[in-house]
Design a binder for these strands. Sequence first.
DNA 1: CTCAGTCACTTGTGCGGACGAGTGGGCAAG
DNA 2: CTTGCCCACTCGTCCGCACAAGTGACTGAG
Lengths: 238, 238
Amino acid sequence: MSMDFAPPKYAQVMTAIQQRIRDGEYAPGDMLPSETQLVREFGVGRTTVVRALQTLAMQGWIEREHGRGSFVKGRPESPADRVRLGLSTAEHPESADNIVSVARVPAPRHVATLMGVDERTPVIARQRVMRQGDRVSAAETLWFPLEIALGTDLDKPDPLRHGVRQHLQAVKHLRIDHVTERLTARKPTKEEAELLGSSSPVLGVLATVHDPAGSVLLVLSLALPGDLHELEDVYQVS
Amino acid sequence: MSMDFAPPKYAQVMTAIQQRIRDGEYAPGDMLPSETQLVREFGVGRTTVVRALQTLAMQGWIEREHGRGSFVKGRPESPADRVRLGLSTAEHPESADNIVSVARVPAPRHVATLMGVDERTPVIARQRVMRQGDRVSAAETLWFPLEIALGTDLDKPDPLRHGVRQHLQAVKHLRIDHVTERLTARKPTKEEAELLGSSSPVLGVLATVHDPAGSVLLVLSLALPGDLHELEDVYQVS
DNA sequence: CTCAGTCACTTGTGCGGACGAGTGGGCAAG
DNA sequence: CTTGCCCACTCGTCCGCACAAGTGACTGAG
């Protein structure tokens, strides 16, 4: 007996209605069938229909007006689905040709500050580049506290085929919980300019990656040439 | 009889639990009282308790585990509460000393593209600066389609004491619904460099401001010197 | 004509009950 | 000691019902 999973009924009602909105059968502004009609159509109780509709309303698919009905709003805009630069960098797999250097170095001041350690404490610096065609499209340095890198391959110049995040999770059961990003416009450093082959302005991203307890797993510095990168963000005005 | 509003019971249960989490009575990781216990404590039906708990879970206050119980996660972090540069610019009141020029000019290419009109269509350009102490901390230009500016004071060089958003709302009942922002690093234009007194890299923000129907109310170009501005963003990793 | 009342319809909230399913501890057989 | 079963407890879902409250159209009194 396979007994394959049936999703709960309220979810079935939700996906059915979402599909009809996507298909244009229910257009924005239209009034949905009343709860009673949906009860009859799907053969479920009103509790179930109401739960489906209220969840859709919370997700922004529809609007409900007391005494009038439920109305289609459309596909919900992802609420500020900002690009997560720090995270995607930590997840990107490496290959042999994008690792520039891996070394044990004294922490520069801004990195030490973010890690909460003294300046010049030794840390692991892992420098990489991203390529777009034959042009270097980004230069990045990942800084790890020694105790994090201990026992991992993060301090070795071999490429991590599954990305930094996976490696930390698999080898030391360290989990990324949240990321703080600071973004500014600046001139590239000499090193970055050399790697990028240009000294025109870059977007500088400085991200601090934390575990659930708030400890710093790594600090990440990213230089994105302004002529190659644009960050987009859409948001609703309340 | 005043009959003042009592919030619905499920909301009362929610706020009671939220309060206890804020007060530390329920600490992160703690197991909440079971649904049955909450039913007894608040004197409501299980439906009501479940609805409260499920809503709290959706908002990120707690986690529910089938067969084990409900557990405190903590105060939910505001989900990517990004700085809304475009919107705050549209809301900022003006004063006599920060308006640089107001003129009718042909739309430059990137502005025309965003407005969906032909290049060189006449538009209103309203150029302003922001000051921090005695230094100019930002240069911005607001571009309005003629039909939007028509009948408003947007094309007059007098300061709008309540900001552009208020003015559009008050005079023409136009409402801002959503904003699209594109952000990059670049060199300032000659004009911007002159206003800013420096040609070091700037964060360039290009925001398109829409009404509920999707029409463009204005396009906004912002130049923020990189050495004065840093954008910060914190996000949770699912 | 105007206005208030009625009525059918909508959603909002709430209850009690029922059954399913996951978890974890205790207990007895092996 | 280990294994497997049972049982109490948890949350997940669903039902039918009830009443409150907002809306809008229609209707009859004035």
